[in-house]
Amino acid sequence: MKQIAVVVFVVLLMGFVLYLANGEREMLPNEVSRYYIEHFTEDTGAGNAVAAIYLNYRMYDTIFEALILITSVIGMMHFFTIGGNK
C-alpha cells in the first residue's frame, strides 16, 4: 500500500513538473551563438569551435564534467566491496 502511494506520488510529481515545463521555451538570444561561431579563433586560438567552447567559453561545464567522473569512481570504490582478490 505504501509502495503504491509512493508510485502515485512520483508519477503525479513527474506530471506536474512536465506540465510546468511544457509551456516554457527557453530561447537563447541568437547573438551568442553567432558571436561564438564568428570570433572563436581570435578569442581562444583554437581551430575547432567545440574545443573553444568547452575549454574557454564554457569552462565551468568541463570542470564539473571532470568532477562527475571522479564522483562516479569514488561511488564505485565505496559501494563495490564484495569479493576482492586485491
Partner: peptide, 21 residues
C-alpha cells in the same frame, strides 16, 4: 583531461574485475 579520463575509465573497469567478478 585525456589522462584523467583514461585513469577514471581504467579504475572503473578494474574495480569491476577485481571485486565483482
Amino acid at each position: 583531461i585525456g589522462f584523467k579520463v583514461a585513469l577514471g575509465l581504467t579504475i572503473v573497469v578494474f574495480r569491476y574485475a577485481f571485486f565483482e567478478d
